[in-house]
C-alpha cells in the first residue's frame, strides 16, 4: 500500500518535471513545417547577440566567482579560526540575500550609485559591470558561504594553521597552500552553483541595462516563436552541466578521501 503511494508520488512528480522538458525540446525542433530540424538552434547560434551576451555573462560569472572566493574564503576561515563571536553577524548577513528580493537590492543600487551620487558607478559601462558583479556576488553569497563553511568544518582549521605556522609559513602561504586546497571541493561546488545562477540571471542585468544572457533570452522570447524553447534547452543544458560538474568534484573528493 505504502509502496503504491510511493510509486504514484514519484510517477506524478516525474511526469510534472519531464513534460516541460519534453515540451520545450519538441517545440524547439518544430521550426521547419512538417519535420523536425535544428533550424531554431542554427538561428540562435547565428545570432551575434547570442555570443555577445553569452560571453558577457560568462565573463561576469567568472568575475563573480573570483570576487566571491576572495571575499568568502578568508572571511569564513577567519571567523572559524579567530572570530567565532562574529559568526552570528556573518551568518545573518549571508542569509539576507535569501530574504531581500534581488529586485529590491538592485533598486537600492540604482538609487545609491547613480551618476549624481558619491560613488557614481552607473555612470560608465565598466562601473556598471562592477556593480553588477557585486550584485551577483551578493546573490551567490548564501550558497558560496555555506559551501565553503561546510568545507572548513570537515578539516581542523586551527590545527592545520598552527602546524603551518610552526613550520614558518606566513598568512598568504597558509591560506593559499594549506587551507584553499583543502576546501577546494567546497569552493568549486560553490563556484559552479554561482555560474548557474549568473548565466540565467535576468532582473539585475535588465535593470542595470547591461547586455547579459538573461535579458537577451527575454527579448528573444518576446519577439520569436521557436528560438525561445531552443534557448531554454541550451540554458537547461548549462544548468545541468554546472550541477554535473558540482557532483563530479564532490565525487572526486570522496574518492580521494577514501584513498587517503
Amino acid at each position: 500500500m505504502t509502496r503504491f503511494f510511493a510509486w504514484s508520488a514519484l510517477l506524478f512528480g516525474s511526469l510534472y518535471f519531464l513534460l516541460p522538458l519534453v515540451g520545450m525540446t519538441e517545440f524547439s525542433l518544430k521550426m521547419r513545417r512538417g519535420e523536425y530540424s535544428f533550424d531554431a538552434y542554427r538561428r540562435v547560434f547565428e545570432d551575434p547577440r547570442f555570443w555577445e551576451t553569452f560571453s558577457y555573462s560568462l565573463t561576469l560569472a567568472v568575475a563573480t566567482i573570483v570576487v566571491g572566493v576572495f571575499l568568502v574564503a578568508p572571511t569564513a576561515y577567519w571567523v572559524r579560526l579567530k572570530l567565532p563571536q562574529a559568526r552570528p553577524f556573518v551568518e545573518f548577513v549571508t542569509l539576507l540575500p535569501l530574504v531581500i528580493p534581488a529586485i529590491v537590492l538592485v533598486f537600492g543600487y540604482i538609487r545609491l550609485y547613480n551618476t549624481s551620487s558619491w560613488l557614481p558607478m552607473t555612470g560608465s559601462a565598466f562601473g556598471t559591470d562592477i556593480l553588477l558583479t557585486m550584485g551577483y556576488t551578493t546573490l551567490a553569497l548564501p550558497y558560496m558561504y555555506r559551501s565553503v563553511d561546510t568545507g572548513l568544518r570537515t578539516i581542523d582549521v586551527a590545527t592545520l594553521t598552527e602546524a603551518a605556522q610552526s613550520l614558518g609559513a606566513g598568512w598568504i602561504t597558509i591560506l593559499g597552500r594549506i587551507i584553499l586546497p583543502n576546501v577546494m571541493v567546497a569552493v568549486l561546488s560553490g563556484a559552479f552553483l554561482t555560474l548557474a545562477i549568473v548565466m540565467g540571471e535576468f532582473t539585475m542585468a535588465a535593470l542595470l541595462n547591461r547586455p547579459a544572457f538573461g535579458p537577451f533570452m527575454q527579448l528573444l522570447g518576446a519577439n520569436r516563436a521557436y528560438e525561445p524553447p531552443a534557448l531554454a534547452v541550451i540554458a537547461f543544458a548549462i544548468t545541468w552541466g554546472c550541477m554535473g560538474l558540482m557532483q563530479l568534484v564532490t565525487r572526486f573528493s570522496k574518492h580521494e578521501r577514501a584513498k587517503a
Binding site: P20, V22, G23, A232, I234, A235, F236, C242
Partner: peptide
Amino acid sequence: LTFSGVASNFAGVPLAFAFIATL
C-alpha cells in the same frame, strides 16, 4: 537529488519558455 539540484536552479526566463512550449 541530482535532478532536483538542476531543476531548482532552472528558474527565470528559460523556465517560462519551457512552460509556454508545453502548456
